[in-house]
């Protein structure tokens, strides 16, 4: 119990004093996961819309597959990306392994299914009356699409928030393709909040771990507040 209290006190000290190491790790986490979320959004929303509006064979199966991939373990994604970008892998010449770019790629792949699936759900949740109204008013295909998407935007925003949450909280892929490197320059380092927590805990530095955990939650809170604000506007 004493350990936990001590951890919290240390955590508050590290956060209040803006400890440079902790801040750099937190900033790196946000940059990597936010980039991954933006990339995944750019793929997932159009893809989700295409699947939702599309009529093609195997559509149901595809949706099932996407939903199954919600449970994709982060280490499996990490392993897959590792094998692809390791030097002997097909993209080895790009030398991406152990770089932040590799982590962005892995996190993008990781959250793509859940964001695509939730986009489909968001569109399915649109009131059918709106669809009928739009059709009966003779909306063009584009007008139809724009209006449905507009109606579903809050639910799509929620999908983005969930994607970001999964990206910033995962550790399996980050450690496999990033390597948890603490280099002298910010851009070459791949230590993020989750991998740092994992390392600090294994080294017995419990208070640092708690501090980093609290920082992670503060970031999540900030993102949620931002999204709620947008939703209520």
């Amino acid at each position: 119990m004493y350990e936990i209290i001590e951890g919290f006190v240390e955590a508050i000290r590290l956060i209040v004093t803006l400890d440079p190491d902790v801040m750099a790790i937190a900033a790196r986490s946000v940059i990597i996961s936010l980039t991954a979320t933006v990339l995944a959004t750019l793929f997932a929303v159009p893809l989700g819309a295409a699947i939702y509006f599309g009529t093609f064979r195997g559509r149901k199966g595809l949706i099932n597959l996407i939903q199954t991939l919600y449970a994709l373990p982060t280490v499996v994604v990490g392993l897959l990306i590792f094998l692809l970008i390791s030097r002997v892998g097909p993209f080895g010449s790009l030398r991406l392994l152990f770089t932040p770019t590799a982590m962005v790629i892995a996190q993008t792949v990781l959250i793509l299914p859940i964001m695509t699936g939730l986009t489909i759900s968001a569109l399915s949740g649109v009131d059918p009356v709106l669809r009928d109204t739009l059709r009966s008013l003779g909306a063009t295909r584009l007008q139809f699409l724009v209006n449905i998407m507009k109606e579903a935007r809050f639910a799509i925003l929620a999908a983005v928030a969930i994607g970001f949450g999964r990206a910033i909280s995962e550790v399996g892929a980050a450690i496999l393709v990033g390597g948890n490197i603490m280099a002298s320059s910010f851009a070459s380092s791949t230590r993020v909040l989750t991998t740092a927590i994992s390392l600090e805990t294994s080294m017995g530095n419990i208070s640092e771990s708690i501090a980093l955990g609290i920082v992670l939650l503060i970031i999540a809170l900030g993102v949620n507040l931002a999204i709620t604000t947008v939703q209520h506007r």
Binding site: T35, L39, L42, F43, P46, L47, A49, A50, F53, G54, T55, T99, P100, T101, V104, R141, L145, S185, A187, S188
Partner: peptide, 30 residues
């Protein structure tokens, strides 16, 4: 239907290209 799908596909390819470019520019090699 088909045209919409095509449009969506075109957008995605465009995005892929953009991402590809930004990916290389953000490569952190001093």
């Amino acid at each position: 239907q088909r045209r919409t799908l095509f449009a969506v596909a075109a957008v995605m390819v465009a995005l892929l290209l953009i991402c590809g470019c930004t990916g290389t520019t953000s490569d952190p090699t001093p």
